[in-house]
């Protein structure tokens, strides 16, 4: 009994860590859907890009913290550029094309990643907190990787920051207004172009942050983010699509469940996670937070 408990605890922390990354991606998905009623299929690619950016900065001698910060900020602007340059063109024609366009974008960015990096996995060489350093909890005799703890902590800080930004700042309120009713917001002097750009910026930045945080854990490779981006959507559906907090909770649940399942039955992990997604989107489309975004088509 004690052994299983120990095992679950051991798995929960990495699961939670992954879950936080999914949650970060889920926040982006929720914000985007609330604001523009579209879905970004390129999120995963940006996660990978951010991770690679962070890694190459570290290679040039910057510390873990500064390279993460710089990569995150850089990807914010990448997101802004994508929205302004590419997505807005397509939104003008027909918003539904964004789904396919971001798919194409995902191919472009992922393969650009491959070209920059090659297809092998790089381990983050320079790390502040040694990957192999464990935190030992005597009471339950469990070893937890410091990197996991750091990742979880940083993710929480990011999530709280986003919450404060949206609810306590002027621009955050403007974004929420524009999400609710773009026309009314425009007539109140809010630039929907700007709010959309910032939405994409935040989405990309959060994704990159997730990528940089998991770099030390899994090694950095070109395709690192694809699954994470998709699972961000899964978590968002679980939590109630469009609801930011639901996305966080959903992402964390997915992370934990997936890790536990992956330990038991690893070859079928992809099928399992996707099947979960399908179950939720078909049977419980309103998710945990009962968000009525997905309705009868």
């Amino acid at each position: 009994m004690n052994d299983t408990l120990k095992l679950i605890l051991q798995l929960m922390i990495p699961g939670l860590c992954l879950g936080c990354v999914y949650g970060l991606n889920g926040i982006g998905a929720a914000l985007l859907y609330k604001g523009s009623h579209t879905i970004n299929n390129a999120q995963g690619a940006v996660v990978g890009f951010g991770a690679l950016l962070g890694y190459s900065l570290q290679n040039r001698g910057l510390g873990l913290i500064s390279s993460t910060i710089i990569a995150t900020i850089a990807c914010f602007f990448v997101g802004v550029l994508l929205q302004v340059g590419v997505i807005s063109q397509i939104e003008k024609k027909a918003p539904i094309y964004v789904v396919i366009a971001t798919l194409a974008l995902s191919i472009v960015i992922t393969n650009a990643n491959y070209l920059i990096v090659g297809s092998y996995t790089y381990d983050s060489a320079v790390i502040l907190i040694n990957v192999s350093k464990y935190l030992h909890i005597d009471s339950v005799n469990v070893d937890i990787l410091w990197s996991n703890i750091v990742a979880i902590a940083v993710s929480f800080i990011a999530m709280v920051s986003v919450h404060f930004f949206l609810n306590k700042t002027k621009f955050g309120s403007a974004m929420r207004a524009a999400a609710m009713d773009p026309f009314a917001a425009e007539s109140c002097g809010i630039s929907v172009v700007k709010t959309r750009a910032v939405t994409w910026g935040i989405m990309s930045a959060l994704g990159a942050l997730g990528g940089c945080l998991t770099g030390p854990l899994f090694g950095v490779s070109a395709g690192i983010g694809i699954a994470a981006g998709a699972k961000g959507n899964t978590g968002a559906v679980l939590g109630g699509y469009g609801n930011m907090y639901g996305a966080i909770i959903g992402g964390m649940i997915i992370g934990i469940v997936e890790t536990i399942f992956g330990y038991i039955y690893s070859p079928y992990q992809t099928a399992f996670t996707n099947a979960l997604f399908l179950i939720f989107i078909l049977l419980l489309p309103h998710g945990i937070m009962n968000e009525k975004a997905i309705e009868e088509g």
Binding site: H37, V237, T270, A271, N274, L278, I281, E295
Partner: peptide
């Protein structure tokens, strides 16, 4: 019964499940 975007996600999921299996 799914609307456009979610149908896109769901069909991707189906593709992944089949491929994995």
């Amino acid at each position: 019964k799914l609307k456009y975007h979610f149908l896109a996600l769901a069909t991707t999921a189906v593709g992944e499940v089949v491929n994995n299996l």
